[in-house]
Each structure stands twice: as C-alpha cells, then as structure tokens.
Write a protein that binds this DNA or RNA. Structure first.
Lengths: 192, 192
DNA sequence: ACCGGATAATTTACCAGTAAAAGATATCGT
DNA sequence: ACGATATCTTTTACTGGTAAATTATCCGGT
C-alpha cells in the first residue's frame, strides 16, 4: 500500500481506525475521536468532549506512569494514597477520615488497613471515649516508606511533565484549579 | 465551640483535616493537599503535583458526573465506550481493535461483548478468511441506544463545564491537547 | 433509665478488570 | 510441505472495589 498521507483507499487492508490507539503524527487521540464523532453526527457541539476526553485520557496515562515507582515499592496507588494522607496530615486519622481524604469508600479503607497493618506500615488504636472509632497512625516503617517513595514519585512526575515549559504548566494548573473548584463546589450540589 | 474563622484551638473537637474532603472557602482540595505536603516536607517541588493531582481529581469527578446519564440507560461507561467506538468508526471492528479503541484489555472486551450481545446491542460474525478473528457490529438497537444517549451526555458535559467561559475552555483544551500529545508520543517510548 | 435513631467500622456477597495460560488458526523460513 | 513462531480470542484464577447488611456504640428526648 502507499505510505502517503491521504485517506486509505477502499478495500485497503492493514490497520484502520486512526480513532484511538496510537496518535497520528499530528494531534492526540482525543482529537481523532472527536473528528470521527463529528463526521457521524455533524450537528454535535464537541467542545466539551475535547476538554473532558483529554482530562480523562491524561489521567489514565498519568496514573499508569505514576504507578511504576510505586509498584517497585510493592504498593498500589490506593495504598500509597492512604499512607500519604496519614503522612501529610501529620496525625492519627480514623477510618472514616481516611475514606474522606482518599475519596474512597469505608469498606475499601477497611480492607487496605488490614493489609497495611499486616505489613507493619500502620497501627490501630481504639479510642477510649468513643469505642466505635479507631485511630490509625503510621508506624516508623510506614513513615519511612512514604518518605522514601515521595522524592522518586515527584521526580517521575516532573519528568513526565517535562514536555511543557514553566508558564504553560502554571497556566494549566491555574485553569484546572479553577475547573476543579467549580466541580467540587457544584457537583455535590447538583447531585443532591 | 466557636464558629469563627480562625484556626482550630488546641484540643478543639469536631471536623479536622481540611486536606481533602470538602474544599475550603478558597482553593480546591488539591491546593489544600499540596499545602499539607509542603508543611511536612518544605524542600519539595510541588509544581507537578498541582497539575497531576488536579487532572486526576477532575477526571474522577467528571467520570462520576458523566456516569449518571449512562446509568439511566442501563450502561456502564466501559460499555458505552465500546458501543461508541463502533458507532463513531462507522464500521465493524474486531475485538482487538475494540480493545485498542477503548484502551482496555482484550479480556475485558470479550466480557463486555458477551453481555452486550446478550442484550442485543451488538452482533458478531466470524471472518471467513482468517478464522481467528471475529467482527463485531452494532445492531440497530445498539445504534439507537448510542444515538439516544449521546445528546444527553453532551448536554451534561456542557452543563458541567459551564463554570468556564469560552476562551478559558479553548485554552484548557489546547493545553491538555499539548500535554496529551506529549504523553501519548512519549510514554510508550519511556516504558519500552 | 431507656428506647429510637444516628453514627463508626466491619462483614458479606458480588462484579468488573487483569495477567497469564490455553486454544485455534495463520504465516514464515527452509 | 512442515514445523516453529506469531497472532487473535477466549478462558481461568485472582484481585480489588462496591453496595448493602451487620455489629457495636453513642446520644437525645421523654
């Protein structure tokens, strides 16, 4: 087949679907998907798709990338989030507080705590006043684990973002912050 | 306890941890988390965290929001992605192509196809030339399902992004596109 | 003092996704 | 033509998450 830039000839065999998958020479996969949608439904306002699709796709790729340094330390991202919440707040947290901090369900926190305490990274202690609540704290090993991973994690993040220069990065952070502020302030309200 | 705005007094009971959870009056949850990290590890370069954390958090909130209209139609996001890939490409796809298009594993696609074909939304047909491959296509019901959901989905997306005005939206899309282009071009290479 | 209702954590049953292996078929080198 | 190798899909065994029910405890009103 020809290797020119034009659309594939009818009956052309070989890889089709430049929709998703590997991005074309110019434009990301989301742009290609949006193009496909517009071809099928010409009336569509695809503006929101371009933003939301890219956020989702960036998040997927970034998480995949960030998991690499964690896996080396034998932790999942969810486990690291939990340990990180304890580390950055600097004090004990109850399971429900941990659930709030890590945006996950109470049941998930219970499971993770069981594993993490079996591995000696966290300890639990019952409250004497209210015997329903438990307090969870990092062990020394847990704190060392977090502090050991964190620099590598941040270095990895820096590397992954190295394609954007300083001003772009700042602008992106600001715009995302604004969007996130809206979403966090509003979605609770819209869902209620 | 007092209801004033100041920092909680020592020994103060009640909700602590403005880290994550509900965002404070000003700033999103990510900003709060970053503040906590800086307090604990003052030397850290938190620039990347502010971008990556916000992307992840936005993605989580947006996905949660977008799932609402789908759930009403009895579809999961993953199922809709699969149907959507068939719809937007406009032709049959093999399971491996579907896996590439939806960024998921072949096994996951197999499972979803089983369910979707039981529900009469997709059909399979074996290739006569290469009997290893199967071709999957939308049924009329499947196409109608997608076309019925899509407008509601886009309207929902528009509503959710309504906090940003046009220029901001465009700028955000452009920056994300640039980042995504880098990630998609680069991560495959970095992981190899 | 005690009952009804709220709250904290856990347990249970289940579901979706994954990685690795299996099964079936095609292709290439000799 | 034949065997090794690659490719496409499905299956298997397992993991991690969730929703709903469960257990235990606290609190507020009468």
């Amino acid at each position: 087949m020809t290797a020119t830039e034009g659309p594939p000839a009818a009956g052309d065999e070989g890889p089709r679907d430049t929709g998703a998958g590997l991005p074309g020479r110019r434009g990301d996969t989301v742009a290609a998907v949006v193009r496909q949608w517009r071809a099928v439904h010409p009336g569509l306002d695809t503006g929101p798709m371009e933003v939301i699709g890219r956020i989702n796709r960036c998040a997927a790729l970034l998480q995949q990338a960030e998991d690499a340094p964690l896996r080396r330390a034998g932790l999942s991202r969810a486990e690291f989030d939990l340990l990180g919440a304890l580390r950055r707040t600097g004090h004990e947290l109850t399971p429900s507080e941990l659930a709030r901090e890590t945006f996950s369900s109470g049941a998930a926190v219970t499971k993770r705590l069981k594993q993490l305490s079996e591995r000696g990274l966290v300890e639990r202690r019952g409250d004497t006043r209210d015997r329903r609540v438990a307090f969870v704290r990092l062990t020394d090993a847990g704190r060392d684990t977090v502090d050991g991973i964190l620099p590598a994690q941040l270095a990895y993040e820096t590397a992954v973002l190295s394609g954007l220069d300083g001003p772009e990065l700042g602008e992106l952070a600001a715009l995302l912050g604004s969007l996130l502020g809206q979403l966090e302030g509003r979605l609770g309200a819209l869902r209620a």
